[in-house]
Design a protein around this nucleic acid. Structure first.
Lengths: 229, 229
DNA sequence: GCTCAATAAATTGCATGCAATTGGCTATTG
DNA sequence: CAATAGCCAATTGCATGCAATTTATTGAGC
């Protein structure tokens, strides 16, 4: 059961990565034809992937008018971060109560990878910063919580792509380290305080004006066709 | 711009209602052909609707094996209710801080409708009980919160359909009334206590064993083809 | 009678073709 | 010159056909 990736799955994954790493900027049109052509499949598969991305909130589909990378408003941005605070607090509370055996190790090793990507100034660093929070959710073991956290984190990335500075690292890695410490000590108070501060820092970074949208997508997408990490 | 319902939208809505009102029980197979035939459309539209229902967690799609009404496990049930408590507390806190002008009226009138449906022992009562919580979320004004609450409420309905007593009303309407009172008084403590008790009552109702799954779906679906409420 | 292999039936995954809708462009009119 | 009607290009919505995968069935061998 290794590679059960149907074609639409592959397209979904590639598009998702491209959006989360800010290669596809908010507002970029995503016509089914272009996507199908660049991936060498039909519109059907492309459409399928777009539908899933839409339910993730990463693209917006207007009837008969096509899909585009979602352009969250400042209002929606506030909603996202408000709800994200709520959910991440829940994660912290649970992890302070019960942390899996090698959970701390996993977190530390993830932060190491973040640092590496940041030093290499790879676009992966943007995505990895978000995935730190997803990893936190995964340690709770709740599928649903993972799902919801993934959604708000994805949307946060989009918000930063829309309003934040270009290629901002989204998350201060220092704060990730501090958070791990607080979790290790099973100190929910401190952990929540760090998380709140962390999220506020991210939110505040979303205060610049927006930028124009990029041109043809096929060139960009070619870099995201591979399934590798 | 009144009826912009594409065909797949209509199918999505009908299937969703049928599932939430427990006409389609968990485990029921949902072949694209059958659905397309009963609704008089092609498999494409049916497939589309099923994909959306899958992302709502209402149906499970296994590759090359088709879709079926989701059968949540007891483990998943716990996850759902745990997260639901988290989210509904957030709703209550926000509503205690700021309740829209005629929000209380809207809640009261909704409960009235619940009572009417219950007296008429209409299957609508099951859905209305869930929609009370969605209405609460709507009063916060946060699109995202509405979305998340809708998801956990839908999944709760499914859990009750799987484990609860047949056609149980899911929610004690009394508790809805009490909750409205607490919200009116802007008393988050009491409101949260009622909500917790309420959700525990619902959760506890999910302790019977499960039942077998029903036969052909086309007959059932015919009752849900109309778009009316 | 039981197990296992080969085949047949059912169902999905995907590609393609056509009709329908939307947005923009042009030209006509006041 | 502004406004509006009508046409044109672009794109989606949907139906249908075919290949691939899975499951059920049948039959042979032990």
């Amino acid at each position: 059961m290794s590679t059960n990736l149907s074609r639409s799955d592959a397209i979904y994954a590639s598009l998702r990565r491209a959006i989360l790493e800010q290669a596809l900027k908010p507002g970029t049109k995503l016509p089914e034809d272009s996507i199908g052509d660049t991936f060498g499949v039909s519109r059907t598969s492309a459409r399928n992937a777009l539908l899933r991305l839409a339910s993730d909130g990463l693209v917006e589909i207007k009837p008969n008018r096509g899909a585009a990378v979602a352009m969250p408003t400042l209002e929606e941005a506030e909603e996202v971060f408000a709800l994200r605070r709520c959910l991440e607090r829940e994660v912290i509370e649970r992890l302070c109560k019960r942390m899996p055996r090698d959970g701390i190790d996993a977190l530390i090793s993830h932060v190491r990878e973040e640092e590496r990507a940041l030093q290499a100034s790879s676009p992966r660093s943007i995505r990895l910063a978000g995935e730190f929070h997803i990893l936190l959710a995964e340690l709770t073991g709740s599928k649903l919580l993972i799902d919801f956290i993934s959604q708000v984190v994805s949307r946060s990335s989009l918000i930063l792509a829309r309003f934040g500075r270009p290629h901002s690292a989204e998350c201060g890695i220092d704060e990730h380290v501090q958070l791990i410490e607080a979790l290790k000590e099973q100190d929910p108070q401190t952990a929540c305080r760090i998380m709140d501060h962390h999220l506020h820092a991210v939110e505040d970074r979303a205060k610049t004006d927006d930028k124009d949208d990029g041109p043809d997508i096929s060139e960009i997408l070619n870099r995201y066709m591979s399934v590798s990490d």
